[in-house]
Lab assay of single mutants.
Amino acid sequence: KMTIRVKGKELARRIAKEMKDRNLKVEIHEHGDEVILEIE
């Protein structure tokens, strides 16, 4: 399990899509400006 902190929703969406393309499970937690992606 891996956690990534990202500034900006646009970048977070791009990373999430990339991870889904690799068949990984992604959970997205938004905290205002910061987005936390949990990847399994």
Rank of each mutant, 00 (worst) to 15 (best):
K1R: 12
K1H: 10
K1D: 02
M2K: 08
M2E: 04
T3L: 13
T3D: 01
I4H: 02
I4A: 01
R5M: 08
V6R: 02
V6Y: 04
V6I: 12
K7M: 10
K7E: 04
K7P: 03
K7D: 04
K7Y: 12
G8Q: 07
G8C: 15
G8M: 06
K9S: 07
K9P: 06
K9W: 15
K9F: 11
E10Y: 12
E10I: 08
E10A: 12
E10V: 08
E10R: 12
L11A: 07
L11S: 03
L11E: 08
A12D: 00
A12S: 02
R13D: 09
R14Y: 05
R14M: 09
R14G: 03
I15S: 00
I15E: 00
I15A: 01
I15D: 00
A16N: 01
A16P: 00
A16W: 10
K17E: 10
E18M: 15
E18H: 13
E18P: 00
E18L: 15
M19Q: 02
M19F: 14
K20P: 00
K20V: 09
K20M: 14
K20T: 13
D21N: 13
D21S: 13
D21F: 10
D21L: 14
D21R: 15
D21E: 13
R22E: 03
N23G: 15
N23R: 08
N23E: 05
L24E: 02
K25E: 06
K25A: 07
K25M: 09
K25V: 09
K25D: 04
V26A: 02
V26S: 01
E27L: 13
E27I: 14
E27G: 06
I28W: 15
I28L: 09
I28Q: 04
I28D: 00
H29R: 12
H29W: 13
H29M: 10
H29A: 06
H29N: 05
H31W: 13
H31E: 14
H31Y: 14
H31A: 11
H31M: 13
G32C: 10
G32I: 04
G32Q: 06
G32V: 05
G32N: 07
D33L: 06
D33N: 08
D33M: 06
D33G: 08
E34M: 14
E34P: 02
E34L: 13
V35C: 08
V35I: 14
I36V: 10
I36S: 03
I36L: 07
I36Y: 11
I36T: 07
L37Y: 02
L37G: 00
L37T: 00
L37Q: 01
L37R: 01
L37V: 06
E38S: 11
E38W: 12
I39D: 00
I39R: 01
E40N: 11
E40G: 11
E40W: 15
E40L: 12
